[in-house]
Design a protein around this nucleic acid. Structure first.
Lengths: 314, 314
DNA sequence: CAATGTGAAATTCTTCACAGCG
DNA sequence: CGCTGTGAAGAATTTCACATTG
């Protein structure tokens, strides 16, 4: 449990109570910033540093494993409470951040729109940061992010600062923690049972399931009157009339409307009553739902309109 | 050529130089507000009224057709220049409006986002107004619009006022002209040749063509290496390598990327060089294009992310 | 009475500029 | 030297309130 620096380019790996970061759920989830920058932040905040971190720094070694002493003055290190765990385990986004996100969400839910630029930017940041994560780049600067998504660096800093100080001056933002923080802010960790309404001609079902799983949506029911009994993956198609009942039973919060046959006012109303909070509408029909329900209209016509309305001049 | 009121509920029908509104392109395009409200606006602006309108109002008749006189003091009415035509034939959106829209567009193009709420609202207004148009409701109030899309009425008024005074106090907004004005502001009237890249398994080609046509996009080329020679509607699938050349030749400004096979950096770059300004990306792959090109990402994964990130709490 | 359109205020968002850290 | 975080300024957007109109 100490910082180990394995080269100038590698991120500092933290050991943290559990003796090995790769076994630490906090670190794996990206919430733990690691001993290095983590303790830095603790110090800045006036909090106590991690005694293990102080010790190994003092001894000039990289990790307890390199300590030659036969007994440790710190006692059983597994018993030590990690300040980082204690401090960064919880939620950090500032109240202002939450307000802003809520506002952005509200604005968005208004009209099938996706305004409230802030929420959109968060998704953009996440997209870019996730890419860095995949490539195992440990740190990204506000300028890089800004260039990638086409905004000013100052705006990126403003946005990310509110996530809870995940940046280090002179260095940049830790990729993992930032990704995790945005995911948490958008509540992507929450499991969202989804039901699928309408089985269109040919769907690449596995890729559909994948796409939904990426945001923690698992399809728990497929409904259609015309393809009754058909088997989609592990699920059997059921009649639409059972959709609401099943949605309630399973606690589905998301519905995907994939065919015009499924667009029936009573049916959708029933789903909303059953607890569905968001609907992804793949048909060109307009859904008329209470404004508390988020509807994403994404048929080809709407998309092309969105595109064209951005072209304009010349 | 005069106003004729055929009942309290019907909108005022205008006759305008061409003797019959249904033959007047200005009126059919929705740009002519009609003699009634049109002359009202002329009066307010201190301009001359239409002499024909004044005449029939004076005589208490509804139209020249009802005039008993054998010779008209106004002479050949077809020679009279209609003030409404002169005044409302051109563009009216205020400079402020144009600035705002440009800003919104710029913001949107930044990150595949669709921020700049204003442009989004315009689309929402258009959606609602088009619906009223279809149902032949002549007038809509800011409150109705506001309720439909979930914003304040005052905001609707601010937005629409900049379109050029299409509202009448105590009455509301003329549905046709508002729709036309928004369409013009978004430049939906412009013809946009589009090319289609990648032929996926099963497409309902006619409905695709329809969706694009609704925004004046006509597909002028289909490209794919694996389905070469296949016939889509009136077009024959050509090899992808010809896409850029053809795009330039035909002057395509929009491209739809429908299959991952078509996502090749050189290819897309070539298209941009050839003049493509907007790309609708139906694949899950990220397109890396210069920021002056508008890209709409609309695979299932992105859409579900957009939806889920709007759900959040509870 | 039921609407619009619009100054003016309020609010929110973005940018600038720079202190301070590594 | 490069980069973050943040006051303060600036800009844009939204709301309020009301004069005005039909």
């Amino acid at each position: 449990m100490a910082a180990r620096s394995t080269g100038p380019k590698r991120a500092i790996r933290a050991r943290c109570g559990v003796y090995d970061c790769s076994a630490c759920d906090l670190y794996r989830s990206g919430k733990c910033p690691g001993c290095g920058s983590g303790n830095l932040r603790l110090r800045r905040a006036g909090d106590e540093l991690c005694p293990i971190y102080e010790c190994v720094r003092l001894l000039g070694i990289a990790s307890c494993h390199e300590c030659a002493k036969t007994s440790c003055a710190l006692g059983d290190r597994t018993k030590l409470k990690c300040q980082l765990r204690a401090r960064f385990g919880g939620a950090r986004p500032s109240p202002a951040f939450v307000r802003r996100l809520d506002r952005a969400r509200g604005a968005a839910s208004a009209a099938g729109r996706a305004s409230g630029g802030f929420a959109d930017r968060l998704r953009s940041y996440l997209r870019v940061v996730a890419e860095y994560e995949r490539r195992e780049v440990p740190v990204v600067s506000s300028h890089q992010l800004a260039r990638s998504i086409g905004v000013r660096a100052s705006l990126v800093r403003r946005d990310l600062a509110e996530l809870g100080g995940l940046g280090t001056p002179g260095r940049g933002y830790e990729v993992g923690p930032v990704a995790a923080a945005i995911r948490e802010a958008l509540d992507l960790g929450r499991k969202r049972p989804a039901i699928w309404l309408g089985v269109k001609g040919a769907i690449d079902w596995p890729s559909v399931v994948d796409a939904l799983r990426a945001v923690n949506c698992s399809i728990v029911g497929v409904f259609d009157d015309d393809a009754r009994g058909k088997v989609m993956g592990t699920l059997t198609v059921q009649p639409l009339s059972r959709a609401a009942v099943e949605a309630r039973r399973i606690g589905a919060t998301v519905a995907v409307v994939a065919s015009e046959r499924a667009v029936r006012p009573e049916l959708l109303e029933g789903l909303v009553d059953a607890g569905v909070q968001g609907v992804l509408n793949l048909t060109r029909l307009r859904l008329d739902l209470p404004s508390r329900v988020a509807v994403e209209q994404c048929d080809l016509g709407s998309q092309i309109l969105r595109l064209v309305s951005r072209l304009g001049g010349s």
